[in-house]
Design a protein around this nucleic acid. Structure first.
Length: 424
DNA sequence: TCTGGGGTCCTAGGACCC
DNA sequence: TCTGGGGTCCTAGGACCC
C-alpha cells in the first residue's frame, strides 16, 4: 500500500509555524513580484480567493477581510520541507519526495501496526516536530492514495487520514471524485472528457481503453489502470538525474534594452551553471527565451527562443554565460517591452563522464578545462565563506530587473541575521 | 500600474541515414 | 506507367504536475 503525505496549505503553514498570531486568520502567500496567490489558508479559500488568482484583482476582498498577505519566502519553505521530509523518513524509510510539500511512502512493512494507525502517528509526529499539519491518503496505487489524501483533507471526520481498501470504499470514493480532481487530468483533458459526459473518476475508470488511448495517449491509460487498482507508477526512492535545469524570472518592471536583458540572462545563466555543479552534471545544450507579457495586445507580443550547442559539455559559469549571450543576441528584437526571460540547460550528463571524454581532446582543451574547474572551485569556496555573490562574473547583475517582494517574512531557519529579528 | 517558477512526458514533423 | 521501408535524432509545441 502507498500513502501520500501532503502538507496542508504548505506555504501558509510555514508562515504560521513562526507567527502563531496568524492561526485562524485568512492568510495568503504570493508568487514572485507579489503577483498571484500560490497558497491560501482555509479562511482565505472561504473568502473566494482562487489559487493562481492575481492579487491586484482581489484588493478589495483582501483589505475588507484583513487578509494577511506574504511575499514568497522560498528559502524558508525549502528548509521547512527538508525538516518535514526527514521526519516522515524516520517513520517510513521507503519514501519518495514528490514535491516540496508531498511525499509518497510505501507502508508495505507496517501492516502489523495497522496502516491507519501508523499514518496517524506520522501525522502527529510531523505536527509536533515541525508545526506543519499534513493529510495522509492510503491506497493500493499512487493515484488512489492521492484521491484518498484529498478526501482526508476535505472531510474533518477522517481526522487527517483516509484509507481506501475495500472495493466499496474505492468505488464510493471514485463516485464523489470529479474527473478534473484526478491526479494527471488537467484543464484541457477535462474539457474533452466533459464532451463525452465523463464526469467522475468512476466514469473515467469505465471508459473504453481504446478511446482513452486514442485521445489521452499513454498517460491517460496509466491513470485508468491506477484508478482500477493496477499500480503503474512505482515508488521512486532515488531521484533520477535531472534532464534539464531552468532559471527564469518575470521582471519587476518592463525591460526594453538589450543591455538590461543581457544582465538578466547572464545572471540566470550563472545560476544555471551553479545548479549544474550542485547536480554533478554538465550541459551540452542551452536555450534562452525572452518574452513580453502574455496580457499585452497581440501586436506588442513577442516571444523569442533559441537553442545552441555548448562549445563542449560544461558546467563552467563563463562558458555558460558566453553561450547564453550568443543565443540572446540572435533573438533580441528592438521595440518590445520584455517582461520575462529564462535560461534552460539541457542534454545533461554526469560530470565524471565528460571528464573522461575531455581527456580524448587536445592538450590545450584539457588544460583549459582544468583551469575552468579550478576557477569555479575557487569562486564557490569564496562565496560559501563570504556570501552568495561575494565574487561573480561582471556580466551578472540583478539590480535592473529584480522582482518586487514587498511583504516578505524573515528567513527564520536559514539566515542568522533574521533569527535576531525574532528575538529582538 | 499590477497575472510565478521549475520540472517531466508525449507527439508530430522534418532532416538525415542506410 | 513510375519513386520503399525502417530507423534515429532534433525541434517545437502541448499536455500535465507541484
Amino acid at each position: 500500500m502507498f500513502a501520500l503525505v501532503d502538507c496542508n496549505n504548505f506555504y501558509v503553514s510555514c508562515e504560521r509555524a513562526f507567527n502563531p498570531s496568524l492561526t485562524g486568520k485568512p492568510v495568503v502567500v504570493l508568487s514572485n513580484n507579489d503577483g498571484c496567490f500560490i497558497a491560501r489558508s482555509d479562511e482565505a479559500k472561504a473568502l473566494g480567493l482562487p489559487m493562481g488568482g492575481p492579487a491586484f484583482k482581489f484588493r478589495d476582498i483582501l483589505q475588507k477581510n484583513r487578509v494577511r498577505v506574504f511575499s514568497a519566502n522560498f528559502p524558508l519553505y525549502g528548509d521547512m520541507s527538508s525538516r518535514v521530509m526527514a521526519t516522515i523518513g524516520d517513520l517510513a524509510p521507503e519514501i519518495e519526495i514528490y514535491s516540496i510539500d508531498e511525499a509518497f511512502v510505501d507502508l508495505g512493512g507496517f501492516s502489523r501496526f495497522g496502516l491507519e494507525h501508523h499514518a496517524s502517528r506520522i501525522r502527529s509526529t510531523v505536527r509536533k516536530h515541525t508545526g506543519i499539519p499534513v493529510s495522509i491518503g492510503i491506497g493500493s496505487t499512487k493515484t488512489l492514495a492521492k484521491a484518498a489524501s484529498r478526501m482526508a483533507k476535505k472531510n474533518p471526520g477522517y481526522e487527517g487520514v483516509c484509507m481506501l481498501s475495500t472495493r466499496k470504499e474505492i468505488s464510493d470514493a471514485l463516485t464523489t471524485l470529479k474527473v478534473d480532481d484526478i491526479w494527471g487530468i488537467g484543464r484541457q483533458w477535462n474539457r474533452l472528457l466533459e464532451t463525452r459526459n465523463i464526469r467522475t473518476a468512476l466514469d473515467y475508470s469505465r471508459t473504453p481503453a481504446s478511446w482513452i488511448r486514442k485521445n489521452l495517449h499513454i498517460p491517460g491509460i496509466r491513470i485508468q489502470e491506477e484508478l482500477n487498482g493496477h499500480s503503474c507508477l512505482p515508488l521512486e526512492q532515488v531521484r533520477p538525474p535531472k534532464q534539464s535545469i531552468c532559471t527564469s524570472r518575470s521582471f519587476g518592471r518592463t525591460v526594453i534594452s538589450l543591455d538590461e536583458l543581457q544582465q538578466a540572462v547572464a545572471t540566470f545563466a550563472g545560476t544555471c551553471a551553479r545548479k549544474l555543479r550542485e547536480e554533478g552534471s554538465v550541459a551540452s545544450m542551452l536555450t534562452v527565451f525572452i518574452c513580453t507579457s502574455p496580457f499585452d495586445e497581440p501586436h506588442r507580443k513577442y516571444r523569442g527562443t533559441r537553442t545552441l550547442a555548448m562549445p563542449r559539455p560544461s558546467r563552467d559559469t563563463i562558458s555558460v554565460i558566453r553561450t547564453a549571450e550568443l543565443a540572446l543576441a540572435s533573438i533580441y528584437r528592438e521595440g518590445f517591452e520584455y517582461k520575462k526571460a529564462g535560461v534552460i540547460v539541457s542534454g545533461l550528463a554526469p560530470a565524471s563522464s565528460s571528464e573522461r571524454e575531455i581527456a580524448l581532446f587536445t592538450e590545450e582543451d584539457t588544460a583549459g578545462n582544468d583551469r575552468e574547474k579550478r576557477l569555479m572551485e575557487a569562486m564557490e569556496s569564496i562565496n560559501r565563506r563570504y556570501g552568495p555573490a561575494a565574487v561573480r562574473i561582471a556580466a551578472e547583475n540583478d539590480d535592473a530587473w529584480k522582482p518586487n517582494q514587498a511583504m516578505k517574512s524573515a528567513q527564520y531557519t536559514t539566515a542568522w541575521s533574521d533569527i535576531l529579528t525574532l528575538s529582538g
